[in-house]
Design a protein around this nucleic acid. Structure first.
Lengths: 338, 338
DNA sequence: CCTGCTAATGGTTGCGCTAACATTTACCCA
DNA sequence: TGGGTAAATGTTAGCGCAACCATTAGCAGG
């Protein structure tokens, strides 16, 4: 047997190693770490010293198993390359970190199948809560969540049943298109990539607005499923100008595409907004810096993360879902590109 | 007592629920899930059915506790807003996912203190391996890692002891500055933000190069600790032109700043590269799209992720650290901005 | 017909921790 | 002084799973 005064050689110090070292019982060490005010200051100090001397780091697995609480929250976003979701993550993290929750962050690559796979993997951690982007889960994913019985908050969109924080993508698409119409444009195009749920809804809003003035025309829509990128924005602009040379405004489904479109116009000597107005979506940092500065929809993505975390915390605490839906709105930011 | 045919109402199905359902022992279920070829196909099938019917999801905490292996890998990067690290993460994930490792992804906000805090939190999961960015950990972080006895691979930089994958930031900074010198520029500025280790090393390389031709001048350096952004790039360019109006080339420590500088030049009517050459660092996607296209250093960040994961896998498997240092190099991408 | 092997399966134990209950101690007020 | 209370600490059991060891069945070889 190993020397009882030292942690066993094979592994790391455990609670009872610390307990032995501090000459108290294991549960007292547990309390000293988790509910310090239930332990006398004398013992607490002795325990703290023992913890430091042994380099003790608690084992979350054991704690989770014993306490039936993992203190982790799973977060699934479509992509970490998209600043929108990173901003949301930051909001979540800001809100959840102080409570000791640890995030399991994963990206789905905009794929429902990957989402299900990741979800299954994360549920193995028995998270106390789950944050998802959008509602387009597979049947399997929904079944997993139902079985798990874990609180779920969906982000970005509205109109889901259950807890949900976001804004109306349709209304935002509509509002931006209305702005272009009010500027006098009548041949407004919609350029989209990465055709996820939200991009489709923005297109929906676009179509609503142009139809109202009888300006809908399939040639004015360019949509490809490829991942969005600045380069693609330029390419799609080229394609658009070929199939609808008379268009006078472009609504890009996100800022990246809009930047690419603007760069392409610069190369082709197309005046923006004189000959062609260009608008984006999301208001990423750079959109205010580019020339001409980009008109876009500012989305409250950071706030969505914060609010989603709040809602989740309430749900974990067992509070009744007062208002399941939280609409955080959006705002139109008009700059020089329109 | 609860009906033994059904999982208990209070919680989720466990291994023994599945075992009961399939009329086998718990350990057989465990084997059917983890080492399927050690179980007869008949039982395996029965177990699979039971798993599906009960919606069983294994509990990683319990598994980790019993098997003394968590099958998780902790990854710490400075920021998720920086595409460089997201690309690295993707490389890591691609390599580690097939092995069933799950990533604990965290950002440190470029702060060694946050890094230590996150590291401590992640070590509570008893990860099988740790991936860190750079080497600037605190004493505490180093002590934590030493105590944990977990394999660690450091990314991005070179010249650490231990396992390490990256490229020489100094040489890259030097190479880019040499390029500007060869283009005939003699008043080359260095503009930097987010003054982390890597940015300082690039500056070091810059200084080496300009000193060789006697062109070093403190007025040609603008460095602020603020987080890097496109907007800041424009601002710093303004500051630079004020304190060194005669400079004829700018080496920005990253692409974001360079974009901002180019936009600022556009606004001021400064010809790039005629009046002022501008170069960046990292070769992010947009750098090829902007006008003029940006000269920059292409960094093998995705490959760094892959290689770091490989090195870590080997270390976890207990293979001797053959070559602790892996230099993946970089390449100069010359475009129109210089 | 027995030995020795392998493949398939099960029983027991313990991973590190905390919930629940039990116990001890100190101290207050009637 | 005794009964009561609250605060501090300990004891026991068990979370869900896999390591370890045992057992059984089937079969080849002498």
């Amino acid at each position: 047997m190993s020397d009882p005064r030292h942690p066993r050689a094979s592994g790391r110090a455990t609670l009872s190693d610390v307990a032995r070292h501090a000459r108290v019982s294991a549960i007292t060490v547990s309390r000293a770490l988790n509910t310090p005010d239930k332990v006398s200051s004398e013992l607490r100090e002795r325990i703290e010293i023992a913890v430091r001397e042994l380099g003790y780091v608690p084992d979350r697995s054991a704690r989770a198993l014993a306490s039936r609480q993992s203190f982790t929250v799973a977060v699934l976003v479509p992509s970490l390359s998209n600043a929108v979701f990173v901003d949301t993550l930051r909001g979540i993290s800001e809100r959840l970190d102080p409570f000791g929750y640890q995030l399991l962050i994963g990206d789905t690559g905009y794929s429902a199948e990957v989402e299900e796979r990741r979800l299954r993997a994360y549920l193995e951690h028995r998270p106390d809560g789950v944050l998802l982007t959008g509602q387009a889960q597979t049947e399997g994913a929904r079944a997993l969540l139902a079985h798990a019985g874990v609180p779920v908050v969906r982000m970005m969109d509205l109109s889901a049943d259950g807890l949900c924080v976001g804004f109306s993508q349709i209304k935002a698409g509509y509002a931006l298109t209305r702005h272009l119409l009010e500027r006098g444009h009548r041949r407004i195009a919609y350029v989209a990539a990465q055709l996820d749920e939200r991009v489709r809804l923005r297109g929906e809003g676009y179509r609503c607005a142009v139809r109202e003035v009888g300006g809908d025309d399939p040639r004015l829509e360019v949509a490809v499923p490829d991942p969005s990128s600045v380069h693609l924005g330029g390419e799609l602009l080229g394609r658009l100008l070929q199939q609808a040379p008379d268009c006078d405004a472009v609504f890009c489904c996100n800022d990246d595409l809009a930047w690419g479109a603007i760069f392409e116009c610069q190369r082709r000597g197309i005046d923006v907004p004189g000959r062609l107005a260009i608008a984006g979506f999301n208001d990423l940092e750079m959109s205010a810096c580019i020339n001409p500065a980009l008109t876009t929809i500012a989305t409250p993505r950071h706030q969505i993360g914060v609010a989603a975390a709040d809602l989740l915390l309430a749900a974990i605490a067992g509070e009744p879902p007062a208002d399941g839906q939280r609409d955080l709105g959006f705002s139109l930011v008009v700059r020089q590109s329109t």
